[in-house]
Design a protein around this nucleic acid. Structure first.
Lengths: 243, 243
DNA sequence: TAGTGGTCTAGACCACCAC
DNA sequence: TGGTGGTCTAGACCACTAC
């Protein structure tokens, strides 16, 4: 065939097929955030469309947060574009407005496991790796997290050396497994601390708890992570923008 | 001047000035959702720009949710584009999956008032109208709301006849006061029921409470409403999409 | 200074809708 | 059938970045 589109629906308009082709290249890990992707003129030649059509395709990916334009320099992959640290659930400043100390993250467990029902339903598989973390502010534990990721996307995650992990998981997902988290859904509810959670959070059993369940999706809208996080309901707040 | 731009920064590109001019017309109530706005060709002539530039301006407003394109028919105002009923905070179906009965909304109070500190800070004025509502599912009260709206945007709201109100406030804001809510910020936290709230919700004093604070903004990003809503924490859940 | 993205033009043809 | 938005072209010039 004359053009270079990946296997996309030929009935779609050219800009949509180009957009899907570029998304596939991103998902395949063809590009990194440090080198610009091909220029608009190059893409126009490669796919035999006009620059205007390239711009429309790239516009879509920029508005999705996948790409980033830098005038005079080029267009770059934006990864991890997704900043959803659980610490936005708690105040980062004390009552005087002074910033609290740097958030800490302690990995408690990392091993193959069978996913609990909720996680298996969200991920579409029960074969997962389970991660347990405790996150703290000023040496006070504030959030207890259980995280499940599918083994077929994260083979070998459980044996990665500890130095591969920073305070955030999503950069690790991208750098070591090419998994780019693009969006997520959160669900906040109320519960009470079990013995185990209470012990980790240094609160009492049955104390009020804020519970956040999250499912995260990659650039192709496939679920790649399910997690449940718990913190004391006192001082908890969840901010959200609605459009 | 030759073109028809409203008072916009002449340093901005043409599409941005046109977008701002169209936003101002929307805010001024020049258009309704039932009649199309002028066609792209008409706008191009009126503002002495090309159709491509009109498309770029309209694209922005479409992606903001202010306008809606209908191929073959025209471009229409989308109002109220904002659907954020508080009932998404509670399950609308019982445990068997059967839908619960239609949500109800009872207005308890509607009068001029002095805004509490939080509301005054969010709205930038203390001169407000206070609205108190109780919202129910299957005749069970689930949400107690206190709402504050600035008097300078909603003059006469407190003396509107009851028939002017449906179950949702935002359509009333638009139809009677030309105020179009475009976005809002929510903050979820947990607390305990006061005597008054407990009585309204038919729960016990000090029972766990989910509290949602919301600030709503109009098309020009001016705050037009602040509300605080409370419901029993049991059965509460708040869903949110993160991008 | 060469190359990039940012803006803008003046058309063309197509798909769809309302009359 | 006429008018609308949807797609697409093949340029032009500008603003900015990197070297």
């Amino acid at each position: 065939m004359r053009n270079g589109f990946a296997k996309t629906d030929a009935r779609l308009p050219a800009y949509a097929r180009l957009r899907d082709t570029l998304t596939a290249r991103i998902a395949a890990g063809d590009w990194t955030p440090v080198q610009p992707i091909p220029s608009e003129a190059q893409l126009a030649r490669e796919f035999d469309v006009s620059i205007g059509t390239v711009r429309k395709a790239v516009d879509g990916l920029v508005s999705e947060g996948l790409l980033e334009r830098r005038q005079g320099s080029g267009t770059y992959l934006r990864a991890p574009s997704f900043n959803a640290t659980l610490f936005r659930f708690f105040p980062m400043r004390d009552s005087d407005g002074a910033p609290l100390s740097i958030p800490q993250s302690k990995m408690i467990l990392r091993s193959r496991a069978k996913a609990p029902a909720e996680a298996a339903e969200a991920l579409g598989t029960g074969k997962v790796i389970k991660i347990v973390r405790l996150r703290s502010l000023s040496d006070l534990p504030v959030l207890f997290e259980e995280i499940y990721i599918p083994r077929n996307r994260f083979a070998g995650f459980e044996v990665l050396p500890d130095v591969a992990f920073g305070p955030l998981l999503y950069p690790t997902y991208f750098e070591h497994f090419g998994v780019l988290v693009k969006r997520a859904t959160d669900e906040v509810s109320f519960g009470r601390a079990s013995d185990a959670v209470a012990h980790q959070l240094r609160i009492r059993t049955d104390d009020p708890l804020a519970v956040i369940r999250r499912t995260a999706f990659d650039v192709e809208d496939k679920p790649v992570e399910w997690r449940i996080a718990s913190g004391s309901a006192d001082g908890f707040r969840y901010r959200s923008e609605i459009n």
